[in-house]
Structure formats: structure tokens, C-alpha cells
Write a protein that binds this DNA or RNA. Structure first.
Lengths: 341, 341
DNA sequence: AACGTTACCGGAAACGTTACCGGAAACGTT
DNA sequence: AACGTTTCCGGTAACGTTTCCGGTAACGTT
């Protein structure tokens, strides 16, 4: 493994000069710089970024902690992040948390040992211990979700979609179609987005004076099969509902699947709206009305936040909420008795 | 930022002793070790992995270069890789190549500057320049695809699914169902997997003495819309075909979509088999017969190859091909004239 | 009591790089 | 011709670790 010293010796210059050639330092003659750069290519030398990090006290690396890169939602965010960070000369070190608090701590610890310059994280549980660690960090941190009340004192930025507004919009669409007996299939309430989407659903109903009860709400999970079980339970409790809002597309697709298998017609018998706008939601058999999230934009903006804080040297807290758009497809339609008119 | 020196001074010991406490070195009394570990927690000190890498001449980092993390195929591989590597104490540095040769070189260069201990890569074009770089690497390298003929001299390992066999199996299934007028919708031939799948298709036909021509083959692309256009063109050229083998699931799903929209019945009119077994391929409306690939296994094994080479200190070349399983669902059935019997 | 062995610890060098300082040559100015 | 300024370069310290060497104290053995 060649070092800067080898290059210096080989070319008959000092290490300082080689370093200058590498770092666009002006204190070097044009010809010597060219000679050195040529020599570096010829002897195929690669600088040691770790040694550089050591003395410069910045690593040019940013940590990215996600629950699961397999989730298309996150992988697209990751793509956006990688795009802007690599363009700015940063490397992304990625760690899977798998929603496991222990793994989360472990991964964070190893990222910090690597002396990352910044951190982008979709926090899971974030127990007290982890909260303390995050609190003590003196690097830019961006949360990929809204800050909870008890996290407000943290000096971390956040970026997220406005889940409440988006859910409200989706339910409002159903109500405008004449539906007044709705059902909700939700993801776990522990996740803040789950709570916000439920709140949007409920508030919309309340504002429009539409009655509802616990029978109209089922907390199912996050995957297709949960959606299947979700509708089934929902229709047991309230058989005469005409519209369903599912808190994510996979739940909605699961619901659609169950409905199709049980001879319900969509949207004639039941309208369904989802949340996330997966690629498959536009398929011929699905054509799901859903809320589109600016996934890549979340990644791009979160990375930009880190870069900005890093270049401005001041860690300025920022909380942004991105807007969403409702995509209306064929899974929602006017309620039956209105069609009779 | 606290260093090991601060800890040493604070606790009245030498830096060597602190280092010993951190690295499970036996030359330290139990009580002092405990005292130091306690002190480290209390003063919340994090070791600097870059400094450690510098002197140990190994970074405990492995590079992972993929074309696109958004692809569910790769993201699941990435998950498997991350799982075993992090368990072995390695960190994964991830870089997107986006199938862009320039970006590929750039990313590889920055990974090498980071002095990664190993590299797992799904190479794209791999032009001469890149080939040279890879050739000169003295770290374990694993390709996530079969080595091409002109790459055989490289000291890199490889892992892949047996695309030829798998395709053969899929087509054989169709022939066993009585089909003798088949069509192929392919991904680009440039990708070696595309070529191998086509070869499997052709050889199976030849071995069973089934005639075919260029009219039975369409090279479409990789996405759903390409599948749509693919079938259309295929049916224009050979309207009387009864079965289609699509080189990946998205193509197959696109084909199914177009067939559904144009009032073809599947499998009564046309049987369709895909390749990859995406999660959505099992959906009620799709139920695609397809080849299941051990995605996560690819990730796990590739990571293990790197770990093994790293621990055995000898870079031993290894080329593995994993088996696949044909998953038979409802998109394939006996050919019509056989059903008449 | 003398010795060898073990257990434990501190000091200093080294890893590959950049930052800083100082100096020599070249140049321009008066 | 004398001086100040600029241009360019080399030497050395520093970054935060680990590794190596050496040394002291405690212990056991004869």
C-alpha cells in the first residue's frame, strides 16, 4: 500500500508538496503539481481518507439509519439522500435498525465511532437511553419523522409529510362522494404517523358531523395480509359501511384482495383509499385511490439540511412538513344511493 | 470531543491501559479494567475508529456497490449483507452506481480511499479502465453476477443464481403443459442474466424439438410498461402463441395487464411465467407462475465469502451458483386443445 | 534468601495525512 | 543596490489510536 511518502520520495519532492497537489493548495507551481498528479496516477496511489479525517477532524461521512431498506418508501428516500450527499463529497454509511432498540443503539454507536459528520435517522422506539445519546451529539441530526412532544427540546431537525392533513384530505374525498359510513384500517398507533393518520380520519368525520364509533376502526398492521384480516374484522363489526380508508397502500391492497375474493365490488359496494402511492397501486386490477408522498424529495431535503448545517457551522434546528397530493383512481366512487338519482 | 488521553488523565492511568481495557487485552487487572470502563461510560467517550484503522491497517468497513437500491431484488440482498457483516463487526459503506460508468468509477475511488477491507459489487459495464482498477485491488472482491469470459482472469469471487437452468426449468414447465408455440419477452441482452435466460429458453425449445423463430422473441426492457409493449409486439408477430416466458416479473405483470385489458384470458388463452418472484406476484389478480430467487441468501453468502477471505488471510477465488425454485401459480395452465380431451 | 516467573502498567514509536512555520529564491520597487 | 513582497517548498508537529518494549512489584520455588 503506497503512501504519500513513497510518492514524495519517488518524485524527489517533500510530502507537503504532494499534499498540496492533492488538495488544490495554491502554494504550488503549476508544473510541479502536474508532475505530481501524473506520478500519482502512474504509481497508482490512493490517499488514505481515514488519516485525512483524523487530522482534519471531519470525516466527510454521514450516517443513515433506517428501519428496513427493503421498504420501498425508505429505499427511495435513501436514493435521494445518497444522490445529494455524494455530489457534495460525502459518503453515506448505512445501518439497519430493524426496529430493534438494541440494534439501534449498537448501530448508532458504531457510526459515532466512525466520527460521522452528520446523521439522518428514522428513529424507532427511541427510549430514554437513546434519547440521551442523541441529546449529547454535537453533529447535525435530521429525523425522518415529526418530533414528538417530549423530543421538542432536542436540537435536531426533522422532515416529514403532513400525515394529518393528508389523511384528512383522503377522508374528505370519500365524504364528498357521499359516503357517511366509513371504516379505518390502521397501522400501529405507536408510530407517530399512524396516530396522525387516525387523527386526520377522525377529525374529518367530526368536522362533517358524521358519526363513528370504535366499530369503525381496526388497527391491523402494515402488510398485505394485515389488510386482509383488517377488512374482514371491520365488516364483521359494521357490515353496512361503504368506504374504507387504509393507513397505507399495502393494507389497502390487502383489503382489495379480500373484497375481491369475497365478491364485493369496488367501488360499487365499497370504496377504498390508501396512503403512500406505491408503484403497484396503479396496476390495472388495483387502481387504488391514494395519497402520493414525495419520497425522493424527503431524501433530497433531509440531505440538504445536513449539508447546510455542516457548511454554515451552526446547527440550526428546522422542522419541515411536505405536502402530499391525493391521486384519484378507480377504487373510489360515489356512494350507491347517490348513484340511484 | 474526548480522547483516550483525557480518559487516561482523568483516571490517573496511562493511555496504554485505557486502550487495553477497550480491546480485551489480558494484560490488565480486572478492577482497573472495570474502573476504566466505568469511567468511559461516565465521561461518555467514544473511540475514534479512524485512528484505530490507521494503525491497525484494516478499516473494518466493506464497500457495497449496487446499481439501484430501489430495486427490491438488490435491497433484499443488501439486507442480507448488512446482517452478516454487522454481526461480524464490519460496517457497510454503500454506493449507488446507477448504471453510470463514470459514477461507478467515482464511487469506487472514494470507497478505496476509505480503505475498505472488502468489496461487494454488482458491476455494470465494467469498461477497461474499471477492469484494470479491480484487477489491481488486493482486497477480497465479490461480484454479484457471473464472471464473463474476459473476466475469468480476475481474482474475484462471484455469486449468482443459475439463470440458464432456471429459465430452462420455467420453459420446460410450459412445454409439459402442452404448449408448443411460445413467446419470449426479454430484458436487455447486454446484461449477462438476460442472455442466459434467453439461452435457457432457446435450448429448452431445441431439446424438445419445438420450432421457433425471431418472431417468438422480443427484447423489451425491465419495467411493467415494457412488458405491456412487449406482449403487444409479440402477439402482432405471432398471434397464435399460447404461452409466454417473461424474463422478469415486472415484464410478466405488464404482459398480464395488457392481456387483461385486451380481453385475453390467462391461463385459458395464454399462459404466462415470470422470473424473480416479487412479493406482488402472488396477489389475487396476478398469481404469477415464476422462478423464485434466494435473494437474501445471495446477500448472506456474498458477505460470508468476504468475511471468510478476510479471516483466512488468503484471497481464494470462489464461484457459486445458487439454485432456484419454480413456483407454480394460476397464470399457467394446460394448452387449450389438451383441455378438450 | 535468592532467584525466576508472572501480572500488570507506563513510555514512546508508529500509522498516513494535513497544518503550520520558516526559509530561500525570484521578483518588483524605489 | 538595497529592500520588501511574493512564490514556492521543506521540515516538523499534530491528529487519536495501538503496538512494542521495558520495567516494577508480587508471587512462588528451591
Amino acid at each position: 500500500m503506497k503512501t504519500i511518502k513513497d510518492i514524495a520520495k519517488e518524485l524527489g519532492v517533500s510530502v507537503s508538496t504532494v499534499s498540496r497537489a492533492l488538495n488544490d493548495n495554491p502554494d504550488i507551481k503549476k508544473e510541479t503539481k502536474e508532475k505530481i498528479l501524473e506520478g500519482i496516477k502512474r504509481l497508482n496511489y490512493t490517499p488514505n481518507a481515514n488519516a485525512r479525517s483524523l487530522i482534519q477532524k471531519k470525516s466527510k461521512m454521514v450516517g443513515l439509519m433506517l428501519s428496513d431498506i427493503t421498504d420501498p418508501f425508505f429505499s427511495e428516500i435513501a436514493l435521494g439522500i445518497e444522490e445529494v450527499l455524494s455530489a457534495e463529497g460525502y459518503q453515506v454509511i448505512y445501518g439497519n435498525t430493524l426496529l430493534n432498540p438494541d440494534k439501534e443503539k449498537e448501530v448508532l454507536s458504531s457510526l459515532l465511532q466512525r466520527k460521522i459528520d452528520g446523521l439522518i435517522i428514522k428513529p424507532g422506539a427511541l427510549d430514554e437511553e437513546l434519547l440521551n445519546i442523541v441529546e449529547q451529539l454535537d453533529i447535525p441530526v435530521v429525523f425522518l419523522r415529526k418530533l414528538k412532544e417530549y423530543e421538542q427540546h432536542l436540537k435536531v431537525s426533522s422532515i416529514d409529510v403532513n400525515h394529518y392533513e393528508s389523511a384528512y384530505k383522503a377522508v374528505d374525498h370519500l365524504i364528498n362522494l357521499g359516503h357517511d359510513n366509513l371504516g379505518f384500517i390502521g397501522i400501529s398507533k405507536k408510530a407517530s404517523e399512524g396516530e396522525d393518520r387516525l387523527k386526520g380520519y377522525i377529525n374529518c368525520l367530526e368536522n362533517q358531523n358524521i358519526s363513528y364509533s370504535d366499530d369503525n376502526i381496526v388497527i391491523a398492521g402494515t402488510k398485505i395480509e394485515h389488510g386482509r384480516k383488517g377488512v374482514e374484522k371491520l365488516l364483521e363489526k359494521t357490515p353496512n359501511l361503504t368506504a374504507i380508508f387504509a393507513a397505507n397502500d399495502l393494507l389497502a391492497i390487502g383489503a382489495l384482495e379480500w373484497l375481491a375474493e369475497n365478491n364485493y365490488k369496488v367501488p360499487e359496494d365499497v370504496s377504498v383509499v390508501g396512503f403512500e402511492n406505491l408503484e403497484i397501486s396503479s396496476l390495472h386490477w388495483i387502481k387504488l385511490t391514494t395519497v402520493d408522498l414525495p419520497r425522493k424529495e424527503i431524501g433530497v431535503q433531509s440531505a440538504n439540511m445536513v449539508v447546510n448545517m455542516l457548511s454554515s457551522e451552526t446547527i440550526k434546528k428546522e422542522e419541515v412538513e411536505l405536502d402530499t397530493t391525493l391521486i384519484i383512481r378507480k377504487s373510489t366512487g360515489k356512494v350507491k344511493y347517490l348513484n340511484i338519482n
